[in-house]
């Protein structure tokens, strides 16, 4: 059977029409990320009953309000520990996590680095909009230096995290960055992340038009989508660029992909050993 790409088929299969319209602002990129995740799951032909959607709190972390998977909405920043508990208790499940950048890298930052280190087979998607969308556009851990936010009225004096570098340094075995303008790539990056055995992090760059965009005079939603052509660059192109040329640019594509023993597999060995049937 060929991959189903018919939009109304996908919407009907993966989303609750009863919960529409979404709470996302017109022009927001979050819907693109949520649909990319579902398309990736469609490509992988996963049994929907066995996919668990875990979320934190924020604009990003309402994607599960609309998707038809079994879901857990945790507290702000706490998606990964519960995702860890779900996957560890039942490794047969596919666990996908939706978080905002504040969710993932500020309040949930400690959980993030330890999930990377532990290498549990969970796929985390960070909807990175460079600020705290839900609470009105406060400065966050990914807000660029000098950008404006409701709590950075004179410009941000702090340097941001590059979530992908953070994940890589913490030991994540699959790290990728996508952007909603490059939606086909984004679907593939998520698909590859779910397929990857180990902890996968996908940083999905998405415009927050209403608060970040307006405050930083980034133009219309269309312009904000298109701007991703300017401030992101593919891994392939980046190879031939100098550090000066790469200054201020985010690199798109698969940044890390390596095979390392996965946590729940390792624990199975411990069970075997504890039960006296180890090697």
């Amino acid at each position: 059977m060929a991959e189903q790409t018919n939009l109304s088929y996908l919407v009907d299969k993966y989303f609750y029409a009863s919960q529409m319209p979404t709470m996302w602002c017109p022009g927001c990129g979050n819907g693109v990320v949520a649909m990319s995740m579902c398309r990736a799951i469609e490509r992988l032909r996963l049994d929907m009953d066995k996919v668990i959607h875990v979320a934190g709190i924020g604009c990003a972390a309402v994607a599960h309000w609309y998707t038809k998977f079994t879901a857990l909405q945790t507290a702000h920043g706490r998606a990964l520990p519960s995702a860890t508990g779900i996957k560890f208790a039942n490794p047969e499940l596919t666990v996908v996590v939706t978080m905002g950048d504040g969710d993932a890298a500020a309040i949930g930052g400690n959980h993030l680095i330890h999930a990377c280190r532990r290498n549990i087979d969970v796929t985390a998607i960070v909807y990175n909009n460079f600020n705290y969308g839900m609470t009105g556009g406060q400065v966050g851990p990914t807000t660029p230096l000098g950008s404006f936010a409701s709590t950075a009225p004179y410009g941000n004096a702090e340097r941001p995290f590059d979530i992908c570098s953070l994940a890589e340094a913490a030991g994540a075995t699959y790290v990728a960055r996508g952007a909603v303008y490059y939606v086909k790539d984004l679907i593939s990056l998520i698909e590859r992340g779910i397929r990857h055995k180990g902890f996968s992090l996908i940083d999905a760059v998405t415009p927050c038009v209403t608060v970040f965009g307006r405050r930083n005079k980034l133009g219309t939603p269309g312009e904000m989508f298109k701007a991703q052509r300017r401030f992101t660059v593919s891994v392939k192109k980046a190879k031939d660029m100098s550090p000066e040329e790469l200054e201020g640019k985010l690199i798109r594509g698969v940044l890390v992909e390596k095979e390392v023993p996965e946590f729940t597999d390792e624990y199975e060995k411990i069970i075997a050993q504890a039960q006296g049937r180890g090697e």
């Binding site: 706490r78 520990p81 519960s82 860890t84 508990g85 996957k87 208790a89 039942n90 330890h114």
Partner: peptide, 19 residues
């Protein structure tokens, strides 16, 4: 887990799977 918030979070996740 990495802290007490994480450990109760993990227990919640596990309990949801039926254990």
């Amino acid at each position: 887990m990495e802290d007490e918030i994480g450990s109760l979070g993990a227990a919640i996740g596990a309990a949801l799977t039926g254990v």
